[in-house]
Design a protein around this nucleic acid. Structure first.
Lengths: 227, 227, 227, 227
DNA sequence: GATGAATGAGACTTCATTCAT
DNA sequence: CATGAATGAAGTCTCATTCAT
């Protein structure tokens, strides 16, 4: 009966959305099934009809979301041909997508740890997938000679870590003076990461720290070490 | 009564040590006051005499530990004169110290999130302290012209994030093939981060990704010291 | 519409059989409507179409089964003319029938108690029916002078209790050394019960306790038929 | 600290008493920890501090009670020298004691089955202990030649079953016409059981079935089969 | 200061039952 | 007639915290 199945599917989505909302608001531990059910306009039993337990909700949420994000990232990578550009694209999409869904980002970056070892392991797996994605591009870039040889496993981890940290700060901080816009963050991060692998930063403009960022010379014009 | 105070202090230390042990073994949520009390050779009531609640134990543990680490980092910074070397030293000390105390690192990086918003805020504060420490050095380097101007707030965050990610991976992964040694990690990370600010990498040797890392040529674009 | 009624009846039977199977396997409390429905090749809704609730299934099962057994017992009684022989026959049939359907016996003797007061009351009623059946024969035997006057209400209860206990032990025990065969049990129980009302034990042979039962002399005080 | 331990012990007793009361009133399944706690004048957590779970309360109750009863029975047995008299004494004490504590009898005879297989197994064990006690006396009686050889394992089971059934009926029935007094029950049961093993019934007086039981001839004067 | 029995709010989960399709 | 998604009351159990001793 496709009618019931359709309803079931839609209800699952509703529960997942509600779970994301409640968890991002309250944290995983404080998020009660009751509240998730209320926000999904169903009952505790209804939630347990669709999911075997609380952890599995978060797991499903994780898979669902990471699948979506991963799809976007792979799409963005495929649209570029140059390895360095691919890596750049991957980061750009991650940054945009996660920033757009603050609550989800909070859930996975911050609140996830309370969910027990199984869940942490899963988060690590997924992060590794993204790290692997980045690393593939770095390896390709090394292979083509675009960048110098390096331990791309570590570097890819570092990239993801840098991205996470900057993003988390953006996502958790309140708007105010000193807070960078997403574009500023992207620009600075992009330049920093590309420099970190010795790649040129096309059309780069860096911002100095402090109240209002102002444009500075591009990397190319910064011939100090280049001479 | 200094005698009693000393005894109280020592008892507090014992509880903190026990808490660190239990939390790193079980995670914050699973760590029961009872078990911490048992490991500290006292009773539940004893724990509550010294700390007003469970969260405050973790908070105290956090302050105690971050204070120690901070001291080491500041000492290392003071021992260097060059801003870039200072930043480099800060990272080196963080890497060494946290790697040495895996369980504590796990506690703050992974298990902490289950402890509620107050605790997360505190962790963020402490990270910001370290970020600020790094940023000061970067700002100084910019001021001396050693590196190009940049948004050091973001870059410092990225550095810490990169360090955290790489370190966390090192701390949580099991030994095996493909696992890098702490020295290899340090070398790669150092080169990557220094490159990311356009600083020269003294005595750089990079490792290629793959089974067993092997040293390669130094970065061509960084031939200044090499010539 | 006799066709539909027949189908309904057959579906009810299927559900009853499934219920008997599941309950004897899992116990009443652990037997879920879902599992019964599955085993009856229908759905939860289907079960609730035929029965108003879980308890009513067990009640119907009880009535159905006790009706069958009662029929057999009455038939066996009718086939004898001597009151004592009638009582003897009733016990024989009960013993054989319940032993043949271990699972049902378990359901009513052991698992039933979890089903609530209404069900317990019903079990008591049914037991009373059998007790009454036995008692009638005992009263007749007293009336004909075959046995001495006695409080047959109590004695009949005692008989049923003795039968239940011995049978339950047989039904719940695993095969092994020391376990009596159904024939041995019947023989001993028959002799014991007949003696208990002062009736002669035709062709009596008693078994001694211990490893392997062996026939012994008939009861001395009952030498009437033996001489 | 004996003070706290004493309090704990007394609280355990209070919980056991409350559990017996609630279970006998509501049945095992319907007996909620909350209600038991309320009746024991403590809290849910208090109950769980003293007992690891609901089933263990019933188990403790069972052990406690069966220990008491067993002690009384053994004492009564020791006070007699003749094997048949010992068996008789055992039954008398069981009858009196269980009748005196109706609620406990109900708990073990009727409500117990809902408590799961582990509990049922334990009840069976305890019943077997009493059966073994009876059987020992029967074996001794056989050995002394007081009664004829027989399969005492079965007979002892039958005795316990008879006792249980009669007692359960007494305990669960409401007072009214036709209800036998405990003394009448004892007298009839005693005569019946002694006859069942071919033992003489000293000073026996049997009651006929029907409205008001009336005394009849003693077994000895009933020379029909005796001649 | 220390102890541990006791508290009680609240968590997750189950399942007989209902009802729209 | 049948289905199975949905309900919601009730259950067992945990654990941070309190407090009399």
């Amino acid at each position: 009966m496709p009618v019931q199945q359709a309803r079931a599917r839609s209800r699952q989505q509703k529960i997942l959305r509600a779970a994301a909302s409640v968890i991002s608001r309250r944290g995983y531990q404080e998020a009660g099934i009751e509240e998730i059910a209320r926000e999904a306009e169903t009952s505790k039993g209804g939630v347990y009809f669709h999911f075997p337990g609380k952890e599995s909700i978060l797991l499903a949420l994780l898979d669902h979301t990471s699948g979506l994000v991963r799809g976007k990232v792979e799409q963005a990578i495929a649209a570029e041909s140059d390895p360095v550009a691919k890596a750049d694209a991957a980061l750009r999409v991650l940054l945009r997508t996660l920033a757009k869904h603050r609550s989800l980002a909070r859930v996975f970056a911050v609140e996830a740890a309370g969910a027990g070892p199984q869940f942490n392991a899963r988060v690590a797996e997924i992060q590794d997938e993204f790290v692997a994605l980045v690393r593939e591009q770095l390896d390709a870039a090394v292979a083509t000679g675009a960048i110098v040889p390096m331990d791309t496993a570590i570097v890819a981890q570092a990239w993801m870590g840098a991205l996470d940290a900057v993003l988390l700060r953006y996502v958790t901080s309140r708007p105010g003076p000193g807070r960078r816009s997403l574009d500023e963050i992207h620009e600075t991060l992009r330049a920093t990461l590309l420099r970190s692998i010795g790649a040129p930063v096309p059309g780069a403009a860096v911002s100095v720290a402090g109240g209002s960022p102002r444009p500075t010379n591009s990397i190319e014009t910064n011939g100090l070490e280049r001479r």
